[in-house]
C-alpha cells in the first residue's frame, strides 16, 4: 500500500505557529485519521474535516482509535475511485469549521465525474456537499428538451423499460426453476 499525506499538505489550512495571546486554555492538538479509496492511496485528514461525513464521524466515535491505531488502519472505501475520494477530502478540508456557502462552483463539470462524486458523497453522508452536487445535477437539464434530458440522464424509453422488465421476469422465472430443481436433487 502506498501512502501519501495529501489531505493536510495541499488543502488544509496551515496550523497557527503560536497560540493567540488572548487564548487562556492551551490548544488541544488536532487528531488525524486516514482513509483510502479504490486506488489504495491513503489520505491523512483531520478529525475536524471529517466531521462533515456522518458515516466517518460515526465510525470514529464508535472505534475510539488512538492516532497510532488510526494510522495503522486507514478507513477503506473500496467503492470510491481515488480521484473522487481526493475531491471529497479536499472539500472537507476546505470547509473545515466554516459555515458552508450557499453555492459551490468548484464541482466537476464532467458528467461521469459528477455522477461518481454524488454516489461517493451520498455513501459518506456528507449532507452539504450532496446538496451542492444535486443542484449541479439538476442544472444539467435546465432549458433542455425532453429528448435532450433523456440523453443527458440516460433515461430508457417506455419500450426499453418494458423489455427490461420482461427480461427481469424471465430471469427470475429461470432462477426460481433452478432453485426448485436443486431442492428436488437435494431431496433425492
Amino acid at each position: 500500500m502506498s501512502s501519501t499525506e495529501q489531505g493536510t499538505s495541499s488543502a488544509a489550512p496551515a496550523e497557527p505557529t503560536t497560540a493567540p495571546e488572548s487564548a487562556a486554555a492551551p490548544e488541544v492538538p488536532e487528531s488525524f485519521y486516514y482513509v483510502h479509496g479504490k486506488d489504495k492511496v491513503v489520505h491523512k485528514v483531520s478529525a475536524g474535516a471529517l466531521q462533515h461525513s456522518a458515516l466517518i464521524h460515526g465510525m470514529i466515535s464508535n472505534l475510539g482509535y488512538t492516532e497510532e491505531q488510526a494510522k495503522a488502519n486507514p478507513f477503506p472505501f473500496e467503492n470510491i475511485d481515488g480521484d473522487i475520494l481526493q475531491m471529497v477530502v479536499d472539500w472537507c478540508n476546505q470547509h473545515k469549521g466554516k459555515p458552508t456557502p450557499p453555492e459551490d462552483t468548484n464541482l466537476p463539470k464532467q458528467k461521469e465525474k459528477l455522477f461518481d462524486l454524488v454516489l461517493a458523497v451520498n455513501y459518506l453522508e456528507i449532507k452539504e456537499l450532496l446538496t451542492y452536487c444535486c443542484k449541479q445535477v439538476a442544472m444539467m437539464v435546465k432549458g433542455k428538451s425532453p429528448e435532450e434530458i433523456r440523453e443527458i440522464w440516460m433515461i430508457p424509453t417506455d419500450a426499453e423499460d418494458e423489455a427490461a422488465e420482461k427480461e427481469a421476469k424471465k430471469r427470475a422465472g429461470k432462477e426460481a426453476a433452478g432453485e426448485t430443481a436443486a431442492a428436488a436433487g437435494d431431496a433425492k
Partner: peptide
Amino acid sequence: MKLSKFPSLV
C-alpha cells in the same frame, strides 16, 4: 450519467 442508478433519496 444514469439517473436511475442514484438512490431514491438522491
